[in-house]
Computed example of a mutant assay.
Amino acid sequence: MTILVTGATGTVGRQIVNELIRAGASVSALTRDPAKAALPEGVNVVAGDLSQIGTLDFTGVEALHLINFAGDDYSPLKNGQAIVDLAVEAGVKRVTVLGGRADGELEQALAASTLEWTLVNPVEFMSNTLMWWAQSIKTEGVIREPFGGRLSAMVHEGDIGAVIATVLTQSGHGGKDYTVTGPEALTTAEKVAVLAGAIGREIEFVELTPEQAVEKWKNDGMGEETIGFLLQALGNTPEIGYTVTSTVEDITGRPARSFAQWAAENASSFH
């Protein structure tokens, strides 16, 4: 069985590819720039862009992993129906979609199709910690964030990849919509403490007011739309974002990895 992974060079896509390779699957990886893919040996890297239907070829693909956005700006796909039609025509049997936003044309087209589709919706990635905090920890040993009491059931990106890889290779998940979380909900302040323990260095946590956070984000070059999203997501995290699920263990047969485990694995990135 050939499995095609789109978004294969992204945070989750790489994890899916690695899991499938370990399982002995025949894996193809779709990327806009194969020369920069740097994927494991044995992966068939193919050029293509989900937003450009003419660049896609699903011939010989039995299972397909899709993302629901295109380009560096993460804009929603506008050709979801065409992608689904192409998959059906090529004889694809099983499809997973990495979600996390409101259902768009792609999800709606899948729901109306004959394909065995599964939506996988992870909550906050543990790896976001690298993007948001690594630099200030390295240079100052300080984290400046609002909403220190905000809860999040963050999920290890490797667990997201493992769930999707399992669904792609096993039947019985058709029509399901899975929320994927870590094993616990932590506050922002607790997350700082866990990370400090992992790197063996004190990290000062400075809790900003929402007004101070907006000013900081503006100085960091963020646009108004992004700032508005962060205020809503961090200041009013929906219940689904901090409610622990058993999805990882239910599907993969092993417990979800904790933030302490993630922090230990990535400690060197904060020095």
Rank of each mutant, 00 (worst) to 15 (best):
I53A: 15
K93S: 15
V155R: 01
A87Q: 04
Q108A: 13
P146E: 09
A29F: 03
Q52Y: 03
A109T: 07
A82R: 06
P146L: 05
A153L: 02
A87C: 08
A29T: 10
V61E: 05
D33K: 05
V84L: 08
W133K: 10
S51Q: 08
A38F: 09
R144E: 15
N79W: 07
R150S: 12
L115M: 06
A90V: 10
E62K: 15
W132A: 14
D33W: 00
D33L: 08
L130R: 10
K138Q: 15
F147P: 11
K36M: 03
A47D: 10
V92A: 00
E107L: 11
V45E: 08
I53N: 01
G42K: 13
T114S: 12
E140R: 14
D85Q: 11
D103S: 08
I137T: 09
D57N: 14
A23L: 09
T55V: 12
R144M: 12
R32E: 05
E41Q: 14
H156P: 00
A35W: 04
S28H: 07
L110E: 00
G24W: 03
P146W: 05
W132E: 13
E62G: 15
W132T: 13
V155K: 01
T139K: 14
V123G: 00
A111R: 14
E124V: 11
L39V: 04
D85T: 12
A25D: 11
D49E: 12
A111L: 04
A70G: 04
F125H: 13
L30V: 10
V61A: 02
V84K: 09
S113Q: 02
D103P: 02
T31D: 04
L110F: 03
E124G: 06
A87R: 09
P122N: 09
M131P: 01
M126P: 05
A47K: 15
M154R: 11
E116V: 06
G80Q: 00
I143N: 06
A112I: 00
L64S: 10
A90K: 14
V142C: 12
A29W: 04
G100S: 04
G42M: 10
D33G: 04
I143W: 12
P76A: 05
S51P: 08
H156L: 02
E157N: 09
A63I: 09
V88T: 13
L64M: 10
F125K: 08
A112T: 00
A35C: 03
A29K: 02
A37V: 09
A37Q: 04
G48T: 11
